[in-house]
Design a protein around this nucleic acid. Structure first.
Lengths: 210, 210
DNA sequence: GTCAAAACCGCATGAATATGTGATTTGCTC
DNA sequence: GAGCAAATCACATATTCATGCGGTTTTGAC
């Protein structure tokens, strides 16, 4: 018997999921609350569930913060996020915090049931769009081992200066050239990198894209 | 009609999958070869498939090397790995090389068909065990850093804006606040981080020091 | 020895940023 | 309900940046 708990502030959705899961063979859903705080109270008193379904947008503590707190005290509980958010930040923050699955809210009840069973069997339920973003994380963030910028050595010097947080004047002093020369180099760097601010150069550089 | 190609050196498996997929509605599987080299020859001459199913262990070039070569010349082709290997290195190397899905070989024919359709719809098919390993990558590899910045949630928002290369005005628009408020937050951020330029904030953030 | 690329320099101007000095509202704590 | 942090907004000013234009000198390749 898989014991499931729900943290979801929309009463209708919460009751719907709880009733549906509870009537399935092999699943019991004995606790459904509307905030992380309530769930923490419950966990202190009662039997621990195996799996939690959790929203992100909640009254009080957010679901993402909740993951961290709950996993710290009860690392054996697996958490599936069930939310409308499909932006990368929320997804990766959730996974980093310790979530074991991530479903979007349009997921049907049978699919939620499948996800619970999947997780219990050692899988990691994800909505297809979510899986795609996770995969893309590897595709994009790590494939580029050699970004191969066409920056000259001097231009790279200037970039390093920017990354060190220096102003044009400080860079000029560091390399003993005039500030107008720094400007000239920066201009060329912007052209080559297709950007138009210090900020973007620094970001690119620190992301390893130069 | 989804056009699928197969690279698999086991003739029995290859023929089985090809025949099965080809008889499905909406899928055609016109090419099935036993090495990356042959597939490259085919791609030069004929119509490009939308999706490739590819083994890792192959005569000649390995499937993982193959991903890189194929994606370089034909980035629009999505590749699903279909292999017996479930070790993290092979999985992550494949994903980094540009694979869009990863299935284990015990996957049934209908599941392979589902995977093809899933991918065509923007998903990212993965066997449950694979999904679990991918998720664990985030859980373990990245949780460890807690730089402990005392930035408030709003201040962190602003920092994210800066890292995205936005100007004050753009940040103000993103969060629907006035540019003077952005300035105020930036001031406080600078105080807390002991810096005095956008550049330094971005650098600190991307170095994980926030 | 010519040619192109790289590095260097200068001036000018509008835009963006850094920083100061205010203020109001809200929610939480004691 | 006093005190305080957080978030919001305003106005002002000096500095820095982004970008336009124009150059010269050095250096390596052909």
């Amino acid at each position: 018997m898989i014991k499931v708990g729900i943290v979801e502030d929309n009463v209708k959705i919460r009751n719907l999921i709880q009733r549906y899961l509870d009537m399935q063979d092999g699943i019991s859903c004995g606790v459904a609350v509307d905030s992380v705080e309530e769930m923490l109270d419950y966990l202190k008193e009662k039997e621990l569930p195996d799996i939690l379904l959790m929203d992100i947008q909640l009254p009080g503590m957010s679901g993402i913060e909740g993951i961290g707190i709950i996993k710290q005290d009860y690392p054996e509980i697996d958490i599936i996020m069930l939310t409308v958010y499909h932006d990368s930040h929320k997804i990766f923050d959730s996974l980093k915090a310790g979530a074991s699955g991530y479903l979007l809210k349009h997921t049907s009840l049978p699919e939620i049931k499948d996800a619970v069973e999947d997780l219990a069997k050692g899988g990691a339920p994800m909505s297809p769009q979510i899986a795609r973003k996770v995969i893309q994380y590897f595709n994009t963030n790590q494939v580029k081992k050699k970004p191969e910028s066409d920056l000259t050595a001097r231009e790279q010097d200037i970039v390093n200066g920017l990354v060190d947080g220096l102003s044009y004047k400080m860079i000029a002093d560091r390399y003993d050239i005039s500030i107008d020369t720094v400007r000239a180099h920066i201009r060329n760097i912007y052209k080559k990198l297709h950007v138009n601010s210090k900020a973007e150069v620094i970001a690119k550089s620190l992301r390893g894209e130069i």
